[in-house]
């Protein structure tokens, strides 16, 4: 990769932007975590690079917007993928355009619809993201102008990234926990917009293919939620 520059250091990896085969490319390097035992680190890194690559491919074939995969280099702990131009991390978008602002109902609905639909699609294909937060979703910049007149294509504007904790699994428990992780992260990171999750959930149920299974997920989700909230805490 040519002209690579470090753009951000996330929790998992360093992200570099550069040119690969004449395309703008994002290189994600899961650098050695020195705090972890070397054996554990090697195993986790390998598992996650594999999981990420597999999930991206599966998600893409399910019609979900994800970066295109260019190259996986397990030796050097790197994944090369498409650099999504003109996009904003959803968390920043919400912080800048929604938190503490008036008249944002249409924006909230747009995000709820987009997220709900995308996650329903993922889960319908038995893809568990594993780390659903607004830091792991990109929103295409041009979507903001077109959002009012083109409600049906909302989900195409949301690009899912960071599939490192993803798994292919069809158990209800996993899907319910995935939703629960999202709910908690929305509540914590965006406490000014407490209604966001209920909107996501509403559209999730609307777009989940198998209605019977969706009801089972809902029931399981309530169990998971109760487990977390009412946990006996002794300290």
């Amino acid at each position: 990769m040519k002209d690579s520059e470090l753009i951000v250091q996330g929790a998992e990896a360093r992200l570099y932007k550069g040119i690969y085969l004449e395309r703008t490319c994002l290189m994600k390097e899961r650098f050695v975590k020195n705090y972890r035992h070397p054996e554990l680190d090697a195993r986790l890194t390998k598992d996650r690079i594999r999981a990420e690559a597999r999930a991206i491919i599966r998600a893409k074939s399910a019609g979900i917007a994800t970066p295109a995969l260019y190259l996986v280099d397990l030796e050097r702990r790197r994944i090369y993928m498409e650099y999504i131009e003109n996009s904003t991390v959803l968390k920043n978008f919400i912080d800048e355009n929604i938190s503490g602002k008036m008249d944002v109902v249409h924006l909230l609905d747009f995000i709820g619809r987009g997220l709900g639909t995308v996650i329903a699609k993922l889960h319908s294909m038995h893809i568990i993201h594993g780390d659903l937060t607004t830091s792991n979703i990109l929103l295409k910049n041009n979507s903001i102008e077109s959002l009012c007149n083109n409600q049906s294509g909302a989900e195409a504007q949301f690009v899912m990234i960071d599939f490192g904790l993803a798994r292919m699994d069809s158990t209800l428990e996993d899907k319910a926990v995935d939703l629960y992780v999202l709910e908690r992260s929305l509540l914590n990171a965006h406490c000014e917009v407490p209604e966001l999750f209920s909107r996501v959930f509403h559209y999730y149920q609307q777009h989940y293919q198998n209605k019977k299974q969706c009801e089972e997920i809902l029931a399981k989700y309530k169990q998971v939620q109760a487990r977390g909230r009412k946990r006996l805490m002794v300290g």
Partner: peptide, 23 residues
């Protein structure tokens, strides 16, 4: 982290919010 609690907490808007915890 203790015998009865495992939480990752950050402060925001008058609350200590639990970002992560043991399930």
């Amino acid at each position: 982290v203790s015998g009865g609690n495992t939480q990752i907490i950050a402060y925001s808007q008058q609350r200590y919010r639990i970002f992560g915890e043991t399930i």
